[in-house]
Design a binder for these strands. Sequence first.
DNA 1: CACTTTCGTTGGATCGATTCAATTTTTGCT
DNA 2: AGCAAAAATTGAATCGATCCAACGAAAGTG
Lengths: 358, 358
Amino acid sequence: MASLTAGNRRPVRLADIAKAAGVSHGTASNVFSRPEIVREEVRERVRAAAEAMGYGGPDPKGRLLRAGKVNAIGVATAEPLSYFFEDPFARVMMAGISQACDATGAGISLVSAANNEQLAWNIQSALVDGFIVFCIEGGSRLVELARERKLPFVALDLASEDGSVAAIGVDNIAGASMAARHLTDLGHRRFAVLALPFADGRTGLVSPEQVRVATYAGTRDRLTGYLQELSRVGIDISKVPVYETANDAASTKAGLETIFASEAAPTAILAMSDRMALVALEWLHARGLDVPSDVSVVGFDGVPEAKVSEPPLTTIAQPIVEMGRLAVKAILDSDGPVSRHQLPVELIVRASSGPPRG
Amino acid sequence: MASLTAGNRRPVRLADIAKAAGVSHGTASNVFSRPEIVREEVRERVRAAAEAMGYGGPDPKGRLLRAGKVNAIGVATAEPLSYFFEDPFARVMMAGISQACDATGAGISLVSAANNEQLAWNIQSALVDGFIVFCIEGGSRLVELARERKLPFVALDLASEDGSVAAIGVDNIAGASMAARHLTDLGHRRFAVLALPFADGRTGLVSPEQVRVATYAGTRDRLTGYLQELSRVGIDISKVPVYETANDAASTKAGLETIFASEAAPTAILAMSDRMALVALEWLHARGLDVPSDVSVVGFDGVPEAKVSEPPLTTIAQPIVEMGRLAVKAILDSDGPVSRHQLPVELIVRASSGPPRG
DNA sequence: CACTTTCGTTGGATCGATTCAATTTTTGCT
DNA sequence: AGCAAAAATTGAATCGATCCAACGAAAGTG
């Protein structure tokens, strides 16, 4: 019934206009892809036929099959799609990826789903030349799915233990160590750690046992870096509360409640992400605690928001944009050996850290 | 030379494993797409063959051609790709689009290029089921290119005059009018307007003539709304400076310089975007002018940043997320007539506006 | 035991283009 | 005009899958 309107579902193929123009489909194809090699008169005839029949140009679906290359790279996470536009770290990373893609003319396909089954299907059916995998929650599954596609892929921000997967990350141990060192140098001795997930789906204070079996090596490495430095100055690290969050506001606040409920409240907080650190800043302010005179806070990541927070956040800056660029490069020239890059981080001292009171 | 390593460029097709497993390609296909209809023994044999030969599952490229649907929608702009992750308005809009896509399981393809030729090619070859077109700079060209693909598409944030293109926008005249009304009610009589582009590529004070031939009807409508209200209270609108910017920091600051260089500096600024308004806030502060006691500022868009600026920004909020959702819906059920939605806007009064001094 | 269902499998047709070797037409030159 | 070289055109093969009508075998029925 809907077909009453002009009665056709646009089945206009290149072959149709070739017939209409009285040329072979080979020639018709040339009119669009290499117009210079077909005689002007013929070219115009074909163009006119295309115009008349409402032909929208060669369908990329067809071309794709022959050409093999999609000219787009997929960026995958196990978060909902909006993660790409809402998470500060993801946004900066995507900006880096964008730059590299713009430079090479590649497109970006966002591949993602919070739902597990949907995610698998989306990865299996993504039309891309390769994947950049954001390893936050569900990282290992994601890597597994990407690997199954047998396309080039690179894991981001993951201290993957599996040397066979290409990965781009930072030196988490060194970075965390620098953060802790900065605070111990200032004289702090009572610490608390706001940790990223060690494994999927749980939050709360973590035990050494849980750290040992951590799924996420990156989280473990940062903790290792923190604790290494703390024990160096003689702090009993078994007394340092480590609260695992889901890197969102709610679980971070819960962590802060727990941490500050204890007798010996810390004078310094080591947060494994700027996102958590920024939440902490807000929470401390609401609680009437001054930063940095009551509590110092040091983040990790170096997102732009850290520059303009109240007070501006001391943090370990990752070369996020550069990582994004490298990732794209790794996909596009993915012939060589699996590329594993470990980039340096940098301590950026701002106003959220200072000597402890007294 | 590179082919020494195992000497093959992965030409493993479904047909290959079918042959290896001793079944027809039809059956092999079924093993992956409808496993329940093939006998277990056969299924396992095929699966084993696939595993052994390193087959990564049915290639979506092939499936696509047959299926016809990509299951992804393209979002197009004439800006570089990073625009999606850096512009506040775009980010909120993308969040809305993401939500709708998550809900329906569709993917998102970012289609964009600052370079003209590249842009055309990218749109022509994008593997998508439809386009959502961000009409900022280069809007008309973009719409033209999208139209040529003969795919469903919807223009966002564009008061397109051409009734044949689906579009989702807000009532720009009413919104602008509300903004101006708010300020006239407060007692303001000396105004300046920071305008979005009327046409591509130029900035500076605009003449009525330039307004008349504006490419962007949305910009013109907002101006109409402002001026309608101003003349209603008896202001000589020919004296109101209207400075056209490129909606970036540089040209906005240039506009402010121009505006405040004049004898009778305005007591109120009407900015056609929050982005400009926020730049204005900063510029005025740096210049030593207090907002709102020296100058009131009212923006347009309602981006999240407006809530936390110093001072918080009075603005006309668009239902950005809702627009994103509607756009996706328009693409996905694109059978009906071209859908043109005009959504309402809302005046949000914050601290950046107040009565003029004296 | 013949006869109908049901189930699993087969292989050809199709999706919409590009490519390339072969062929035809045009051009250029004497 | 005659012939070689250059340019334009043709059409079959290919890309990698899915779909479906037809068919053979096994199971069920009188």
